[in-house]
Design a protein around this nucleic acid. Sequence first.
DNA 1: TTAGGTATGGTGGTCTGACCACCTGAACAA
DNA 2: TTGTTCAGGTGGTCAGACCACCATACCTAA
Lengths: 257, 257
Amino acid sequence: MDIQIKRSSLPAQVAEQIQGLIESEALRVGDRLPPERDLAERLGVSRPVIREALQVLSQRGLVAIKPGCGTFIQEPSAQHAADMLKLFFKMGNCRGSLDDFFALRRSLEIEAAGLASQRATEADHAALNESLAAMQTNTEDLDAFIAADLDFHLAVARAAHNEFLLVVLEPLVSIWSQVISLSSQAQGAPRVGISYHQKLAARILERDQQGAREVMGAHMQASHRFAVKVQAENTNITDHTIIHESTEDSNEIPSAG
Amino acid sequence: MDIQIKRSSLPAQVAEQIQGLIESEALRVGDRLPPERDLAERLGVSRPVIREALQVLSQRGLVAIKPGCGTFIQEPSAQHAADMLKLFFKMGNCRGSLDDFFALRRSLEIEAAGLASQRATEADHAALNESLAAMQTNTEDLDAFIAADLDFHLAVARAAHNEFLLVVLEPLVSIWSQVISLSSQAQGAPRVGISYHQKLAARILERDQQGAREVMGAHMQASHRFAVKVQAENTNITDHTIIHESTEDSNEIPSAG
DNA sequence: TTAGGTATGGTGGTCTGACCACCTGAACAA
DNA sequence: TTGTTCAGGTGGTCAGACCACCATACCTAA
């Protein structure tokens, strides 16, 4: 009877087809796609359809559109994946509580600390020390302190030399630093973390895996406690949304009546 | 001098503007955007520009386009975030090795097992047992066995009742099951995992957190060893790509020149 | 009165053809 | 050889039109 409900739009179909060619390696990284006009003619659709399909694939990180030059196949970058995850952590409808957030972060940070203690290079040690120094010299400038704190944790994640881990951990740490920077009631707390960071950097330098994991675990526990306290004081961080930003834009798109 | 290079395309600018309105909560979940024609007129651009911008936002999971009805603001769903992550794990240019993959998976699965032991409901226990039974009755049908194996791990992740964790873990488990199902040399190995799963389900039922974590840790270690063995035999899994699928499509988009 | 079908307006989906801005590379001139 | 110039191709954008679909309000028939 052929009465199957076929609802996918033309651009979606085109995008799927091209993505299929990429997955099957009929199209490889670096290949240039035919011009939009050719694609349109070949697939029997109009150019806007092709353009929307390419827009979708570009958004997925599968193609790079270069004006005046062409459209090229590329691999989704780690940064791209991290950005997507960050968007979800920031605005997703996840009903996760602060506890859930820290449960995930703790397990990942401990793993990162353990790996870092085994794999850190001299450059990694330098990065850790640099962030540590920045924290110590900015105990009064909250924003600078938080930025340095963020840098330190990212340095640990990078020192783990595990890209899978980094992709997941980076958004968590970034989101968290955004949350923290919003709660200016955090005065006094900054100094608490420095000793943990000092110990952690030392364990990593000594290649003491167990020690590094334990210090990071303790640090996460302390951060978690601090977060709960901040949460109780600051309604900006609710049980439902991790972030509640309120930027003052002057855009002008009202919602339709 | 104002010679700054301003390269962002119109659709990108429109998408950013609308996303900004969403982030600043000037537009809230469920709100309907003005019709494309209105938006085009209001922003002084053509309709295709608006359409491409909405296509981008839709891809990010921020809006839902309903033909004949309108375009509505929505929150990025967990499934959407997981799909993006899956795409990266599948085709990303991450140079992570099998060891890195398992380091991440181990830390997350152990955390999931620990949480599941504390939070699992009766429905969760039932789901675990169902997957377990499916594994036991399909020791000869490799595909069915792997599907049941996947279900079991997802059931554990769900039993943890931590959406953050689930979003990250689900893609890892799914990708891994795809890899495994490709290596048909895995004969004999299926039965190995059943005892681990049995023990794990028991620990979760007993609400024995430490026991659950230990069993999962041992299970991951065994899986890792097995994976290394498979990797050595199967060139499909290289040190660079986790997945190397080769579907036979009959599409017809050759690469340009 | 009420249930159902129908007409209508609005929405997104698609097409066409045109023009612009930019990049590339080849032809040309110094 | 080197530098400039020019032409072609590419993506970027526009305008207007028509279609398919959905929701609603209206109208008809029970």
